[in-house]
Amino acid sequence: MPAYAVYSLAALAEIAGCFAFWAWLKLDKPIWWLIPGMASLALFAWLLTLIDSSAAGRAYAAYGGVYIAASLIWLWLAEGVRPDRWDLTGMVVALIGSALILAGPR
Rank of each mutant, 00 (worst) to 15 (best):
I31S: 12
P30K: 01
F19C: 06
I15R: 02
Y60T: 11
T89H: 07
L50A: 12
V93M: 06
A23M: 03
L43R: 00
L75S: 10
A39H: 06
R106P: 15
P2T: 13
W24L: 09
A39N: 08
S53Y: 06
S71D: 05
P105M: 09
L25C: 02
L77M: 09
R106S: 15
G80R: 13
I68N: 03
S8Q: 01
A20E: 05
L41R: 02
D87A: 03
L27K: 13
Y7N: 00
S54F: 06
A45S: 12
A56G: 04
K26S: 06
W46Y: 13
A99W: 14
W86M: 09
L100W: 13
A3G: 04
A59L: 02
S54D: 13
L102Y: 10
A78G: 01
L43E: 02
A20S: 14
A78I: 03
T49K: 08
P30F: 05
S40M: 10
W22G: 01
G57Q: 05
I15Y: 04
Y4A: 12
A16G: 13
I35H: 12
S53N: 11
G90L: 08
P83D: 01
A59V: 06
A103F: 10
L9G: 10
K26P: 04
P83C: 01
P36F: 09
D52S: 11
S40L: 11
P36V: 10
R82H: 10
R58F: 11
P36S: 11
D87L: 02
L100F: 15
G65I: 08
D28W: 11
V6I: 10
L27C: 03
A94L: 04
V93H: 01
A39G: 15
M91P: 01
P36L: 10
L27M: 13
L25V: 01
I51R: 02
L72E: 08
D87I: 00
W86D: 06
E14C: 05
I31R: 08
Y63S: 01
T89W: 08
G65V: 09
A16C: 14
G97I: 08
G80P: 15
T89C: 08
I73G: 00
Y60W: 13
W32V: 12
R85W: 10
L95T: 04
